[in-house]
C-alpha cells in the first residue's frame, strides 16, 4: 500500500510539472527570427570578431536586422558572402580575400641589438623601454604578441622576426591591431609585390640601423610604369589599386625589400 501511495505522489507531481511545462512552451512560445538562424548557419562560427561584432551570433543578429553589411565576415570570404546573399536575397560586393603580411625583414642577423631587454616578454612592454631592444625603432621586436593573439596559429617567430603563414591566415586582423610597432598589414591575397620594411628614416641612417632596410632610393618609383609605387617618408608604398603585378619594381630594388610574393601558395619572399 505504501509503495502505491509513493508511486502515486511521484507520478502526480511529475504529471503536474510536465503539463505545466507543456502548456508554458505552448503559451509562452517566442517566435525566433528565422533569418537570424539561417544567417548564423552560413557563418563559420570561429567567433574571431573580425567583423567588428561580439561573435558570429551577434553578427548574424545584426545582418538579419539590416544593421550590418553582409560582406564583413573576413574568414568566410566570398563563399560565406555568396551564401548570405542567397539567404538575404541581395547583391553583395566582395573584396578580394586578404592575408596579413609582416612589413619587416629585420631579423637578428640584420638589426643590431642596442640593449639587452630582460623585462616582461611582450612586444608592448618592450616598446615602452626606448622603443625596444633593436637598433631599428620601426621593425618587428619578435616577442610574439601577435603569436599569442592569432586565433589560428598562423604566426611564428623565427630569428626575432614574426612570420605569417598566408595559407593558414584567416585575415581577422587581430595581429594588425595588437602589434605595437604596426608592422603587420592586411594585403590582398593576389598581390605580387609587397614591401618588407617599415623604416621611415633616411637611407644612410636606415641602413646603419638595419641591413635589410628600405633606403628610399626611389628606383622603384621611377621604374613603375603604372604610377603605383611612391616613396613616402623614405619608404616605398604600393598603391595596390594601380599596381598591375608586373614585378619590375622588385627587379630593380637594390636592397631586395620589394619582394615577389605568392600568398596563395605560401610564398612570402
Amino acid at each position: 500500500m505504501n509503495i502505491l501511495i509513493a508511486l502515486l505522489v511521484a507520478v502526480v507531481i511529475g504529471l503536474i510539472a510536465g503539463i505545466m511545462l507543456a502548456l508554458a512552451s505552448h503559451f509562452f512560445k517566442v517566435e525566433e527570427n528565422e533569418t537570424v538562424k539561417a544567417v548564423r548557419e552560413c557563418l563559420p562560427g570561429a567567433n574571431c570578431g573580425a567583423c567588428g561584432f561580439a561573435g558570429c551570433d551577434a553578427y548574424a543578429q545584426a545582418v538579419a536586422e539590416g544593421k550590418a553589411e553582409a560582406n564583413l565576415c573576413i574568414p568566410g570570404g566570398p563563399d560565406v558572402a555568396g551564401q548570405l546573399s542567397a539567404v538575404l536575397g541581395v547583391e553583395i560586393s566582395v573584396e578580394a580575400p586578404k592575408v596579413a603580411y609582416v612589413n619587416c625583414s629585420g631579423d637578428c642577423s640584420a638589426v643590431a641589438q642596442k640593449a639587452v631587454y630582460e623585462g616582461l616578454q611582450s612586444c608592448k612592454a618592450a616598446t615602452m623601454v626606448y622603443g625596444g631592444p633593436f637598433s631599428c625603432k620601426f621593425g618587428c621586436i619578435g616577442l610574439g604578441d601577435c603569436v599569442a593573439e592569432c586565433p589560428v596559429g598562423a604566426i611564428s617567430v623565427k630569428d626575432t622576426l614574426a612570420r605569417i603563414d598566408p595559407k593558414t591566415c584567416i585575415a581577422c586582423g587581430k595581429c594588425v591591431k595588437t602589434c605595437p610597432k604596426g608592422v603587420i598589414s592586411l594585403v590582398g591575397e593576389d598581390v605580387v609585390v609587397a614591401v618588407a620594411c617599415s623604416n621611415k628614416e633616411k637611407g644612410a641612417v636606415a641602413r646603419k640601423n638595419c641591413m635589410n632596410a628600405c633606403l628610399g632610393c626611389k628606383k622603384c618609383e621611377k621604374t613603375c610604369e603604372h604610377d603605383a609605387i611612391k616613396v613616402i617618408d623614405n619608404l616605398a608604398v604600393i598603391d595596390y589599386a594601380k599596381c598591375e603585378d608586373c614585378g619590375k619594381c622588385a627587379e630593380v630594388c637594390p636592397t631586395g625589400r620589394l619582394k615577389i610574393v605568392d600568398m596563395k601558395n605560401g610564398v612570402i619572399g
Binding site: 511521484a10 507531481i13 511529475g14 510539472a17 510536465g18 505545466m20 511545462l21 508554458a24 512552451s25 509562452f28 517566442v30
Partner: peptide, 15 residues
C-alpha cells in the same frame, strides 16, 4: 523534479 521543472518554467516565462 520540482526544482528542475520550475526553473524551466521560469525561463520560458521570462523569455
Amino acid at each position: 523534479l520540482v526544482i528542475a521543472s520550475l526553473v524551466q518554467f521560469i525561463e520560458i516565462f521570462l523569455k
